[in-house]
């Protein structure tokens, strides 16, 4: 990959923006935390001392994991979008269209409403676990149904099946909300629009492990994925085992996105918008897209979470409302302005 001057400039800009947004995100919120408190909480934390103030505790146990999680999830969703768009050679695909998000949402709703009824041994990762399984089942349902007579069908068939399976899960979620008690229905709504309020270090560890390994693996598949832009036959004429590549990308994507979604709920549009905005700036080379896209996704989600926390402070908005409300107009304006052709 050649990093042009423009690319280096973009990289530095994105890194600086990420630092700024991250600092704002850990500083601002319902409780304002000063720089001094941030430093003292770090020194207490690393020296194994007790926290001296409530703010220090809030910072280490709530604020910091939340900001870190927003960055990880943003990067994951953006790269998930890049991967599936490339895999299907189709610019309108995002993980939400191939059953991953709706499957996860159904799993989560199921657990929220019926978890107690079935007396699952619950702890704080039961919900993410079931959501993650839902996401994986949703994706594989879409893929196996779109195979007819053992042949891989066209992208159009796959997307239509995706739309149908999504509708099925949505009606399931609708039914569950209908039979749910009020607080449960509210949890379902919140989960379906995404929220980072449940962030804790355990979530950060899980998401970090799967996201970072997923990001690294996808980067190394970058060159092969570039060839796939030309088409499956063309890629195989370039010496690539296309079927193997498809499975690798799918598995990386579904695990990475399902795990991220399972902790924060369904956050729409990031996987669709971020890849396109980055493509407008840096072109379609997958390796560049993965680097810049993960940074931009991280910035975008961290910023959106900040807005979600501050707008109605001390109450919180679901983050999906913010990503769509801010992201969609920006996206449309950019699309109409740029000479970005399909």
């Amino acid at each position: 990959m050649f990093f042009t001057k423009r690319d280096s400039f973009l990289l530095i800009t994105l890194l600086l923006l990420l630092v700024v947004v991250f600092l704002l995100s850990i500083g601002l919120g319902a409780v304002k935390i000063s720089l001094d408190e941030i430093f003292s909480s770090f020194s207490n934390f690393f020296n194994g001392n007790e926290f001296t103030t409530l703010n220090e505790r809030i910072f280490i146990d709530i604020r910091l994991p939340r900001s870190v999680l927003s960055i990880l999830v943003g990067a994951t969703l953006a790269v998930g979008g890049i991967l599936v768009q490339t895999l299907f050679r189709n610019p309108i695909v995002e993980p939400g269209l191939i059953g991953t998000s709706s499957g996860a949402a159904f799993g989560a709703s199921f657990f929220i409403v019926l978890g107690n009824t079935f007396a699952f041994a619950t702890n704080n990762i039961s919900l993410p676990l079931i959501a993650c399984i839902g996401g994986i089942i949703g994706t594989f349902l879409v893929f196996s149904l779109s195979k007819i007579n053992g042949n891989n069908n066209s992208v159009t068939v796959l997307l239509l099946i995706g739309v149908a399976v999504n509708a099925l899960f949505l009606s399931g979620i609708g039914f569950l909300s209908y039979i749910a008690r009020d607080p449960q229905a509210r949890s379902i709504t919140f989960w379906n629009l995404g929220t980072l309020s449940g962030a804790n270090w355990q979530a950060v560890e899980m998401v970090a492990f799967f996201s970072i390994s997923g990001l690294i693996l996808s980067y190394f598949l970058g060159k092969k994925l570039n060839a796939l832009i030309l088409g499956a036959d063309e890629a195989s004429y370039l010496g690539i085992n296309v079927n193997l590549l498809k499975y690798q990308v799918l598995i990386i994507n579904v695990i990475m996105v399902s795990v991220a979604t399972s902790f924060v709920g369904v956050i729409g549009f990031v996987g669709l918008i971020v890849p396109h905005i980055i493509r407008m700036i840096s072109g379609s080379d997958i390796r560049k897209l993965i680097i810049f896209g993960s940074l931009f996704g991280a910035i975008f989600l961290c910023f959106a979470d900040l807005v979600a926390r501050l707008l109605l402070s001390p109450a919180e908005l679901p983050i999906g409302i913010v990503t769509s409300f801010v992201g969609v107009p920006v996206f449309i304006i950019l699309l109409r302005k740029s000479n970005y052709f399909f």
């Binding site: 030309l230 088409g231 063309e234 493509r279 379609s284």
Partner: peptide
């Protein structure tokens, strides 16, 4: 191999596409 219709859905420069031949 040159296929009958190589369609591309994403913007790439001519240089990038030709370089794919060297993959």
């Amino acid at each position: 191999v040159l296929s009958q219709n190589s369609k591309l859905n994403f913007p790439l420069t001519v240089r990038d596409i030709v370089m794919m031949g060297r993959y």
